[in-house]
Design a protein around this nucleic acid. Structure first.
Length: 347
DNA sequence: AAGTCGGGGGA
DNA sequence: TCCCCAGACTT
């Protein structure tokens, strides 16, 4: 009770002013929560504004094409969020007449909505006492109560969820949930938290036992694997190039890229030219090949490090239909491709 | 239970 | 470098 009251009191004095805090409309809350998954507020905020501006209602979002949604999402990462966002928008608009489910249990059934997001929407929009447990909550609870169960274990997930559920203020769950998250983000932050001015330091086990830097405990994940990407940037005399849609599983699903040749390890110009001469896009054509980047461009994802080359290939005409170079900006591309397009300055 | 899915930023 | 971020989904 003291814990909860102290948090909400801190929150009323320290909370940031954010657009999704001015509403309880489930469409906007849902949108903000999807955008903010694994994403810092400062990174997600401009995307939230852009989505609200372009799609003021869930019907507007439902009426869009997926490609259009992905384009607006470009650069934010975890693109399955955008695909699921669109799927759920169509479902709620078409099947539920635009009315969002109003309980934790029903919200959980929506694609892209897990335990955290269902709890957030249920509490903020419908005043249901469902406790949120995000990265901030794990940190605050593990420190204050001195819990060393790994937060990314199934045991930890259960334990922290139950604890948060016991602590939540049942009279104002929305305020409590947002307070504990904001407290974790601003006050009880991962590195160099402000323990000396913390209103909870007296009862904080980690602080009193000098274990702030040991908590929360997290099981380390495997190291990223190296991959070697070679993109073929075709340029024809009639100003066309080739973009392909990424299908199937794996990263960047449904985004566009230049034709990709993935190899075992890095390669020099002469060998690469020999290797691609027999490619369907190049056989029976003469072409000029040059490597755009002197050194491989390293693009780091959570589980892969991409060592990337952009090969400029000048041809008279393309072997396939291709797209006009001046329309290249209409396609949703991974930021790795986007950065290249920008620096190459096609048009 | 472990892996996969992005990109940016802090120390 | 390594870690973290208003996590969810697949294997």
């Amino acid at each position: 009770m003291i814990f909860s009251k102290t948090l909400t009191n801190w929150y009323s004095n320290n909370k940031r002013i954010l657009p999704w805090r001015e509403t309880t409309n489930p469409y906007y809350i849902w949108l903000s929560e999807i955008i903010l998954q694994q994403t810092q507020v400062s990174q997600g905020l401009p995307y939230y504004d852009a989505f609200v501006a372009k799609y003021p209602t869930i019907f507007d979002l439902a009426d869009a094409n997926e490609s259009e949604v992905l384009k607006l999402w470009q650069g934010l990462g975890y693109y399955s969020r955008a695909r699921n966002l669109h799927t759920t928008a169509k479902y709620v608009a078409d099947e539920l007449k635009g009315v969002f489910p109003n309980t934790y249990k029903e919200l959980l059934k929506l694609k892209g909505v897990g335990d955290y997001t269902a709890s957030a929407i249920a509490s903020i929009c419908f005043n249901e006492a469902a406790a949120v447990v995000d990265g901030n909550v794990y940190r605050v609870l593990s420190r204050y109560f001195g819990i060393d169960t790994p937060i990314n274990s199934s045991k930890g997930a259960k334990e922290f969820k139950q604890l948060a559920q016991e602590l939540i203020d049942k009279k104002d769950p929305a305020e409590f949930n947002q307070a504990i998250m904001e407290f974790g983000a601003i006050q009880c932050k991962p590195k160099n938290p402000y323990c000396n001015i913390c209103p909870l330091n007296e009862g904080c086990i980690a602080f009193n036992k000098n274990r702030i830097n040991d908590l929360p405990v997290k099981i380390k994940s495997a190291k990223a694997k190296k991959k070697y990407f070679n993109f073929l940037v075709f340029i024809s005399e009639d100003q066309k190039t080739i973009l392909e849609k990424r299908e199937g599983k794996g990263i960047w699903q449904n985004l566009y890229q230049f034709p990709l040749i993935e190899i075992e390890k890095n390669i020099d110009s002469k060998n690469f030219k020999k290797q691609i001469e027999s490619d369907d896009l190049l056989k029976n054509t003469s072409f000029e090949l040059s490597l755009y980047n002197k050194e491989p461009i390293v693009h780091k994802l959570s589980h892969q490090h991409l060592y990337t080359n952009f090969w400029i290939i000048n041809v008279e005409r393309l072997a396939v239909k291709g797209i006009s170079i001046h329309k290249i900006h209409e396609y949703a591309v991974p930021i790795l491709i986007g950065n290249f397009i920008e620096s190459f300055n096609f048009d």
